[in-house]
């Protein structure tokens, strides 16, 4: 671990661990911020004091807070997220069955968004302050400003209610294989989720390309006699893409936020819908388990993003020394 890169990795990992620790604190605190405690939420306002006391004993809620936190942490370290109050299943297995479907949804729409957004952003940058730039900029801001569920409604109204082209609901029993066998059910959810992502990534690409276009090395490439498409397509793009790809890592929590809305609207049987239904029934172990998992995914995402930047960009690499 004498190498700067190894040292950087170690430091970054330690930071990630600290962040996860804070997340567990927040999640634990959330659980105990419930008015009247968890028991009231689950058993309802009519529950007798004896019922509540026995529930609390069963869940260990009668112990002092630090002890409870310690129990919570040690359960987590054994990959035990608890058991759902309502579904009589471990939270771990509930998430495991739904996560792949959510990953398909978010993965496909991120890929679609990336493929559309990067060329758009590059195009805008080279047509800066021209009509195309203004039009795409406006489109990006409008796309960004549209609440996902409003966009979903519009798409449903047009493509389902009016044109009868695409299904608006995913059958709740679909497993991963069936989902992939019927891609038409994926179209509207994927598009809905991709639009705001395209908005964000095209803007980001645009500014990255603009920054690199004003770099000295761009002028060097031109002075060599490199044609403009080579200057942009090779010199500039190679350097602009690194931060954009890293951005994917930082984008994880936003993508999950979008997924929760999209899954609710299209009845898509993923983790978001699980979370949504758990919120309606105050199924706290599920809520907290999902939040923790997403926080872990976020921390991992930004860790990977940082590492990717460090590996791909010699400038960052040398900055580590």
């Amino acid at each position: 671990m004498r190498s700067p890169f190894g040292w950087f990795l170690l430091k970054r990992l330690a930071q990630a661990v600290v962040v996860v620790f804070f997340v567990t604190l927040i999640v634990f605190g959330l659980l105990h911020a419930l008015p009247g405690g968890v028991a009231r939420g689950i058993l309802g306002a009519q529950a007798s004091n004896a019922e509540i006391a026995s529930f609390n004993r069963a869940q260990g809620f009668d112990k002092p807070l630090p002890v409870q936190y310690w129990m919570y942490l040690s359960r987590l370290l054994h990959a035990n997220l608890g058991t759902s109050y309502k579904l009589n299943q471990s939270v771990g297995s509930l998430i495991a069955s739904r996560l792949p479907r959510t990953l398909v949804l978010t993965g496909v729409s991120t890929a679609v968004a990336f493929v559309v957004a990067v060329p758009l952003g590059v195009w805008q940058a080279i047509r800066r302050r021209r009509l195309a730039d203004y039009v795409i900029t406006t489109g990006a801001f409008v796309g960004y400003a549209t609440p996902v569920y409003f966009l979903a409604l519009l798409l449903v109204i047009v493509f389902n209610a009016d044109l009868h082209l695409l299904p608006s609901q995913v059958p709740g029993t679909y497993n991963l294989g069936q989902l992939l066998a019927h891609p038409s059910v994926l179209v509207l959810p994927v598009v809905t989720l991709a639009v705001p992502t395209i908005a964000v990534f095209s803007r980001y690409t645009r500014s990255a390309v603009l920054d690199n276009l004003s770099e000295d090395y761009t002028r060097t490439a031109r002075a060599k006699g490199a044609p403009e498409r080579r200057v942009v397509g090779i010199h500039v793009l190679r350097n602009s893409l690194t931060p954009v790809i890293a951005m994917l890592g930082y984008y994880v929590p936003v993508m999950f936020s979008g997924a929760i809305v999209v899954e609710e609207i299209f009845n898509f049987p993923g983790m978001g819908l699980l979370f949504w239904n758990a919120a309606q029934t105050s199924d706290y172990p599920v809520l907290l388990g999902v939040i923790l998992l997403i926080a872990l995914a976020t921390v991992t995402g930004s860790l990977l993003a940082d590492i990717a930047q460090a590996v791909a960009d010699p400038r960052v690499r040398s900055g580590l020394k």
Binding site: D216, T220, A223, K224, P227, H235, N239, P314
Partner: peptide, 22 residues
């Protein structure tokens, strides 16, 4: 483009930034 680099070439001030880092 055919002129640049072939008939007239240029060396710039900042050697730190004039080369593509990638």
């Amino acid at each position: 483009r055919a002129l640049r680099g072939a008939r007239v070439a240029m060396v710039f001030q900042e050697p730190m930034t004039a080369l593509n880092p990638a």
